[in-house]
Deep mutational scan, measured.
Amino acid sequence: SGVNQQQLQQLMDMGFTREHAMEALLNTSTMEQATEYLLTHP
Rank of each mutant, 00 (worst) to 15 (best):
S1Q: 14
S1N: 13
G2K: 11
G2N: 12
G2R: 09
V3L: 09
V3M: 08
V3H: 07
N4L: 11
N4F: 13
N4E: 07
Q5R: 13
Q5P: 14
Q5A: 14
Q6W: 14
Q6L: 13
Q6G: 10
Q6R: 12
Q7C: 07
L8Q: 03
L8R: 01
L8K: 01
L8D: 00
Q9R: 14
Q10K: 11
Q10D: 07
Q10R: 10
Q10F: 14
L11V: 03
L11F: 05
M12T: 06
M12R: 04
M12Q: 06
D13I: 11
D13Y: 10
D13F: 10
M14K: 05
M14H: 04
G15V: 01
G15Y: 02
G15H: 03
G15K: 03
F16W: 09
F16I: 04
F16K: 01
F16R: 01
F16G: 03
T17P: 14
T17E: 10
T17Y: 07
R18W: 08
R18Q: 07
R18P: 04
R18T: 05
E19T: 11
E19W: 15
H20Y: 11
H20T: 08
H20D: 08
H20I: 14
A21E: 00
A21G: 04
A21F: 01
M22D: 02
E23N: 09
E23D: 07
E23G: 05
E23F: 15
L25S: 02
L25Q: 02
L26A: 10
L26S: 07
L26Y: 08
L26P: 00
N27K: 12
T28N: 05
T28S: 07
S29Q: 11
S29R: 09
T30K: 02
T30S: 12
T30M: 01
M31P: 04
E32D: 08
E32M: 06
Q33I: 02
A34T: 01
A34E: 01
A34Q: 01
A34S: 01
T35Y: 15
T35D: 02
T35I: 15
E36L: 10
E36G: 04
E36A: 09
E36P: 05
Y37C: 06
Y37G: 04
Y37N: 05
Y37L: 06
L38K: 02
L39V: 07
T40V: 06
T40W: 08
H41Q: 10
H41I: 10
P42A: 15
P42M: 15
P42V: 15
P42W: 15
